[in-house]
Design a protein around this nucleic acid. Structure first.
Lengths: 208, 208
DNA sequence: GGCCAGTTCAAACGATCGTTTGAGCATACG
DNA sequence: CGTATGCTCAAACGATCGTTTGAACTGGCC
């Protein structure tokens, strides 16, 4: 009934890995600590010993991926933001490409599904955690969008960013709908996907 | 801790109403039958008596709203589909406006949040139910999009529809971010929202 | 060896879950 | 009136949940 034992890495890492998979598959409530620890090949009590509680484990699952993702996004943004000849494409690439790279290695793609769940669940605790720890990233991108799209009112801009965010979250979590053909390399497919998302976002943000 | 008693309508209707609210707030797993029946002002056993099980209740919550929503969408689509001078705007309006009208009366807006949850949860049972009962609606709209956008390959079109769907679902479930100002009538605000979503979707679908 | 901090383990705790039960109540029909 | 039918009710069922406990085991250090 439950996935096989994972026997590589430390206990904490095995729990985090199994949690990412099961949270993506069954949700935060739906995945029990017993399923989770069985999949990770560790004792049930290990979660509370190493993380304190299930809620703290959820936070750690987010922290591990989001720290890397947002650092990568901000680093990419810093290279293009503020320059007089920066394009909308370049800023969107700084936002989208790190997420696609995350999908590439390990179970990172499952994490985007976990993230989509967090969006759908209007759980206040989780939203506050995300907003407090990673809100500044979206704020920096929003500021750059505002600079590149001066003709839009604040309200207009927020509307469009919200819609673009929804589209990207949906697309990256619902993965698998657009299958990679066998005659296309993974790298080429990722490049194709990035182009799709970026062009769509440019059109959605900058239409008259 | 739990919302007050609802004392209007039949037992079945009170359960359905309370279920819609609580499923939107806490998810399908998160909302317990005890919270639900307490909010509806009915006995705990009433859910299993009238609906058979919690899962069947979930299906009924969807069926009640989706039957009306999709009938309205198909009716609107039938008025414009196939005509030689039909615009993309008109088809998108047929898709979007019925959903906004649903948000208008009663707790319909909460239902869009329930729908967004269903998207995020990759629960197979629920997805099969939705696909089996309402898949034909999306198929008809897709066919009309294909007719109006002959320059796009099938793969291109699916990509864009997927992204637009994500944007709309996200926007209509995340409601409240864009607040209605007190000096704007509700009808005017709804019209504004419709224009926003439609123009965004047109740009996303038809960009070169 | 003896001790100790760090970790794992089986077992149990109380709470809550969806569901079932059987008695009790209401209304309608002969 | 008697009784059948549809519904509501309090109470309990077994299962599963997150968490806690205290003993057992581990390695390194004196």
């Amino acid at each position: 009934m439950v996935s096989p034992v994972n026997s590589s890495g430390s206990t904490k890492e095995r729990i985090l890995g199994a949690a990412e998979v099961l949270f993506a598959q069954r949700g935060f409530d739906g995945a029990s600590l017993r399923q989770l620890t069985a999949a990770a090949g560790v004792n049930l009590a290990a979660v509370n010993y190493h993380f304190g509680s299930k809620d703290k484990l959820v936070e750690e699952v987010f922290r591990r991926r989001l720290d890397a993702l947002n650092a990568s996004r901000l680093s990419a943004l810093a290279k293009v933001a503020g320059h007089p000849d920066t394009t909308l494409e370049a800023v969107l690439a700084a936002y989208i490409r790190p997420a696609l790279d995350l999908s590439h290695d390990g179970n990172g793609s499952l994490f985007m599904r976990v993230l989509a769940r967090a969006f759908a669940e209007h759980d206040d605790t989780l939203r506050q955690f995300l907003s407090a720890n990673y809100g500044h990233v979206m704020r920096q991108f929003t500021a750059e969008f505002a600079r590149l799209l001066p003709q839009l009112s604040k309200q207009e801009l927020y509307w469009r960013i919200d819609l673009v965010t929804g589209a990207l979250t949906h697309a990256m979590s619902g993965f698998g709908m657009i299958q990679r053909k066998s005659d296309v390399s993974e790298h080429a497919h990722r490049e194709q996907t990035a182009q799709h998302l970026i062009r769509f976002a440019v059109a959605g943000l900058s239409h008259p």
